[in-house]
């Protein structure tokens, strides 16, 4: 016997929602609208914002630094997502075929728990040109020293490598969780039929993991586009803007030069890219649920 007359929890509901709605309105809705407004003004934190039309956007499109930032970000995303996804897939497969150990999984998760700032510092020390452990190691085999953060060609691959180190374990565990949903009998059957590990990976793991893999890939992409902390600590965009990613570009425009309007316009660009990616993510989320249910 459920309720006989239609329930209306209006009063209670709005009280339940009050804190979240206030938080949403004040720190999401209002600033989002304000951000769009700033992007069409000359606001610099000291003046009263005046409407300047599309000026910030046209300037942005002609700004070499902006295009450099986009290019550098793209390079980072390719290096980071490429290496991270491949490694994570490999590690997840190893785990899945070898062990269910919680201790091992917790160990893989360790770098993910550590602030990016700490990770940046840690690797600055390990990769230090003169005293760093890695260069000492290279020295003993007759190589180097490599200026990992100071060499223009090396700086970005170094930053990408550091973040791959930090997030591969986490990504691997997400993929591993997806693999655990694949029915075990498929592997047993294939094994009886004499299939090797590589064949099982190609024919069972990869196809059945695809929805999860796609989701994890998009989530990592969204994160990757927003790289900031590691760069703010290690290279500060250098050497010669070689690592000046879009987030850092916006940060400099806003908080170093106080070009708030200009920075807001650049943020609109980034928001558009990320908005598309998030929309894809939500579709995949729905798709992956129906696939694995």
């Amino acid at each position: 016997m459920s309720s006989t007359k239609p329930r209306d929890d209006r009063r209670a509901a709005w009280l339940f929602l009050l804190p979240v709605l206030v938080g949403f309105a004040v720190f999401y809705g209002y600033p989002a609208a304000r951000g769009v407004w700033y992007s069409v003004t000359d606001y610099n934190m000291l003046n009263t914002a005046t409407y300047v039309g599309a000026e910030n956007y046209t300037k942005l499109l002609q700004d070499d630094q902006f295009w450099n930032a986009m290019l550098v970000t793209a390079w980072y995303v390719v290096l980071n997502i490429g290496s991270q996804t491949l490694l994570a897939l490999g590690i997840a497969t190893l785990m899945h075929r070898l062990t269910r150990s919680v201790v091992l999984r917790a160990t893989l998760l360790l770098p993910w728990l550590v602030p990016n700032v700490t990770i940046g510092l840690l690797w600055m020390w390990l990769l230090d040109t003169n005293l760093g452990f890695v260069n000492q190691l290279l020295h003993t085999v007759g190589l180097g020293p490599v200026g990992f953060f100071t060499d223009e060609t090396w700086a970005m691959p170094t930053v990408a490598g550091i973040n791959t180190w930090a997030y591969t374990g986490y990504t691997a565990l997400l993929l591993y969780a997806g693999m655990l949903q694949i029915p075990q009998y498929l592997y047993e059957g294939a094994s009886i039929d004499g299939a090797g590990e590589w064949r099982m990976f190609r024919r069972i793991t990869l196809p059945l993991l695809r929805p999860v893999l796609a989701l994890v890939l998009v989530v990592s992409l969204i994160g990757s586009f927003q790289i900031f902390d590691t760069i703010a600590v290690t290279t500060k965009g250098g050497p010669v803007s070689a690592t000046q990613v879009i987030y850092y570009f916006i940060y400099l425009q806003a908080f170093k030069y106080f070009h708030m309007g200009y920075a807001a316009a650049a943020a609109v660009f980034l928001a558009l890219i990320l908005g598309v990616l998030t929309a894809i993510q939500m579709r995949l989320l729905r798709a992956s649920r129906s696939d694995l249910a």
Partner: peptide, 11 residues
Amino acid sequence: LMVPPIFTLLP
């Protein structure tokens, strides 16, 4: 969820 943190950060 679609609004990235950097966008609301400045305002």
